[in-house]
Design a protein around this nucleic acid. Sequence first.
DNA 1: CTTGACTCTGACGTTACGTCAGGGTTTACG
DNA 2: CGTAAACCCTGACGTAACGTCAGAGTCAAG
Lengths: 250, 250
Amino acid sequence: MTAQDIRAWKIGQLAAETGLTVRALHHYDHLGLVQPSARTDSGYRLYAESDVERLYRVLALRQLGLPLDAIGRVLDGQTSIEELLDAHREYLDRQLVALRTLRAQVAIVAAAGRTGEAASVTHFLELIRKVITVDDTIKQYFSEEQLAQLAERRATLGEPAIAEVQAAWPRLIAAVQAAVDAGVDPASAQAQELAAEWMGLLQQFHGGDEGLRGSLYRMYAENAEQIEAQHGGPSPAVMDFIKAANAARN
Amino acid sequence: MTAQDIRAWKIGQLAAETGLTVRALHHYDHLGLVQPSARTDSGYRLYAESDVERLYRVLALRQLGLPLDAIGRVLDGQTSIEELLDAHREYLDRQLVALRTLRAQVAIVAAAGRTGEAASVTHFLELIRKVITVDDTIKQYFSEEQLAQLAERRATLGEPAIAEVQAAWPRLIAAVQAAVDAGVDPASAQAQELAAEWMGLLQQFHGGDEGLRGSLYRMYAENAEQIEAQHGGPSPAVMDFIKAANAARN
DNA sequence: CTTGACTCTGACGTTACGTCAGGGTTTACG
DNA sequence: CGTAAACCCTGACGTAACGTCAGAGTCAAG
């Protein structure tokens, strides 16, 4: 290297420096993402400082999970970073929602396997179908934003609070059922207390949001039998009791 | 179809019934995952009931995000579902951790774009590198299980509690710095109160877990300057003050 | 008998490279 | 100065799960 030579990297050097493979650099060259600004007479790639700089920019953006073609468009000024990042964040949000539900579903099925609930492959498949049906049903009634909203609410409340609410429902439903069986008057103080707890648990779910409340009610109304039979939901008698108690309050 | 014909589906019928495309069924056939047990003379695929049954099993497992080859191994009895689901759950957990950090990083950078903090592309890239460096550093000191543990703690506490702790740190650091500047005696009641709050915030992070505490301390010790300069961490004087206060307590 | 709907078998494209294969180039060492 | 090791080159196939033609045969209805 003589004195007038500007700094240049052969592909192996650059690969070692960046932690990439030579193949990856070939790939970027092929895509036109990072192309060496010179070659030796024998065809060896020579990366100049500006090329290396561009490569490091690519690597930074790649770390955020952006696709290479999008990175190329940003570096060539065809797209603004702001736009790209916003779109990417939304994309990741959707991925996150999907991945979370998937992992929850797999966890349910795997757990059933360990407790011996699902003995045969057939049992597993039935459970899987059930779990998926639930998800499909929910997706029918709640929009994407609403699901994100619910996820946010869960994160805000924290897991213990969620678990508490989930444990409270069967208890409360059983208590109301007992009150119905005992012929308790929906206008009585006892019934009012049950109804208040009921509305409180519902409140925990929708947080006062009209949209969430409406979607939940519609989902329940149109799937009441399923929910009662398969998921321990309230019977029509229980629902009527709560409605009557609420009506009596006013 | 004569009386002795058993039920059979042509590929288009089966596709319409399952919501798949013909191409997907071709693909499954090619992989040996679901192969029609008969063909017409002219080579049309004829799926028998057993084939359709197998296809529905494939679809159920596919809904859980399992790769087709793994599904094939399960249906052929080469792997147990339990094993596969457990492995898959762990895989999804890892994906979730990665996706969550990624989305957090992108959110940070995108937010900086909206607040005008990052004006030029260069600023963006600097911020990205900073965010990624933080993540890399954390990954050096915390094992995968520890990170999962931390994620669980965050979920347990809920977002508001986390936000509170994060907001409390700069306040407390400033308060301690003020005490140092004012020459407050580390043994004094005021210092003891600050130290108690300090240890309380730390407790919020590690929850009493020795491993987390140790990892955090090591990370701080080996990156104190970075943390102070780049992330508003405590100065050595502040740290000494807290140490002295803790020593005085005993 | 013709036309439209259906089916067949390749084969390429997608994403970001990994992994050879076959063949030149450079460099260090004896 | 010769040679072997190390390095570089250009294809080209493989990955996951299909989507999307292309070109050609088959079937059912009018």
